Amino acid sequence: MDESPRGMVILAAVGVAVGILSGLFGIGGGTVIVPALVWLGLTQRHAAATSMLAIVPTSISGVISYAVNGNVDWITALLVFLGMFVGGQIGSWLLSRLPELVLRWAFVVFLVFVIANQMMFVPSRDSQIVLTPITGVGLVAFGVVAGILAGLLGIGGGAICVPALSILFGASDLIARGTSLLAMFPNAITTTVANVKRRMVHVKAALIIGVIAACITPFGTWLAGAVSPRVGAILFTLYLAALLIRSLWVAIKATRH
């Protein structure tokens, strides 16, 4: 990996971007971190594993910022995490075994799925999750799927948790973001432990990005409350579309080689 002054500046810039996006969209920032680390010289596998460690301080900062304003559903987050804990271990195991090309295309397919869901639904700012036994089981099952994707792709899980909590379970846009951040950070810790044991984490890069992002996240959280749910959904979709174009280009390039 590039550890020159130029590389360190890029890592710091990624940390700033991740902090804003994490607070604004309720994501861990893996969709930014992974491509940046690959560009700096890490393999897709090691970039995904390093991203999970960077997400830990970022998500903790985001949770605090959303919780202060009452936009965290603690029970829902616990149920989702229980599923993500199991799914994250499966994802980490797959990450260490699947070919590099498969990981790149999995990232593209994931982005297409999330964008399609974002375009079809705009959450309400006033709605809340109604917990029932069936909803509880559904949240745990969803957590398993989100955990597998998080561990496999090196994302915190927010890019799938935020739209799913609104579309499938009825959460408002702000509660979905705050709850997503709370559910993802313990999963990021457990998945990172598994990745460190497999020697796939670049600790220095992860800490530079994660610490800087954690300092910036409260500003992103403020932005989230300042824009309407529709504007927030449009911004999130545009952000994902830009990532999709770049990831698709990288995957096609890797396939040709």
Rank of each mutant, 00 (worst) to 15 (best):
residue 2 D to W: 11
residue 5 P to G: 10
residue 6 R to L: 12
residue 6 R to G: 06
residue 9 V to C: 13
residue 16 V to F: 14
residue 17 A to S: 15
residue 18 V to S: 03
residue 25 F to A: 04
residue 29 G to N: 03
residue 34 V to D: 05
residue 36 A to P: 06
residue 38 V to W: 01
residue 40 L to Q: 10
residue 40 L to W: 04
residue 43 T to R: 09
residue 44 Q to M: 12
residue 48 A to W: 00
residue 49 A to F: 04
residue 52 M to R: 15
residue 53 L to A: 13
residue 54 A to W: 01
residue 56 V to L: 09
residue 57 P to I: 07
residue 59 S to W: 01
residue 66 Y to P: 04
residue 68 V to Y: 14
residue 68 V to K: 15
residue 71 N to A: 15
residue 72 V to I: 12
residue 74 W to N: 06
residue 80 V to S: 01
residue 81 F to R: 00
residue 94 L to G: 06
residue 94 L to H: 08
residue 98 L to P: 07
residue 101 L to Y: 06
residue 102 V to G: 04
residue 104 R to N: 11
residue 105 W to H: 09
residue 109 V to P: 03
residue 113 F to P: 02
residue 113 F to K: 10
residue 116 A to N: 11
residue 119 M to Y: 11
residue 120 M to S: 14
residue 122 V to R: 00
residue 122 V to Y: 00
residue 123 P to G: 01
residue 127 S to L: 07
residue 127 S to A: 13
residue 128 Q to W: 11
residue 130 V to L: 14
residue 132 T to E: 11
residue 148 I to Q: 03
residue 149 L to F: 14
residue 158 G to M: 08
residue 160 I to M: 12
residue 160 I to W: 03
residue 161 C to W: 03
residue 165 L to W: 08
residue 168 L to G: 07
residue 169 F to I: 11
residue 173 D to N: 15
residue 174 L to H: 15
residue 175 I to K: 12
residue 176 A to G: 07
residue 178 G to N: 08
residue 179 T to M: 08
residue 183 A to G: 09
residue 185 F to N: 03
residue 185 F to K: 01
residue 186 P to A: 05
residue 188 A to D: 00
residue 198 R to A: 15
residue 205 A to G: 14
residue 206 A to P: 02
residue 206 A to Y: 03
residue 207 L to G: 09
residue 210 G to L: 04
residue 212 I to T: 05
residue 213 A to M: 08
residue 222 W to K: 13
residue 227 V to E: 02
residue 230 R to F: 10
residue 230 R to G: 11
residue 232 G to D: 09
residue 235 L to A: 14
residue 236 F to W: 03
residue 240 L to R: 01
residue 246 R to H: 13
residue 249 W to A: 13
residue 252 I to S: 10
residue 253 K to T: 13
residue 253 K to I: 00
residue 254 A to D: 12
residue 256 R to H: 13
residue 256 R to D: 04
residue 257 H to E: 14
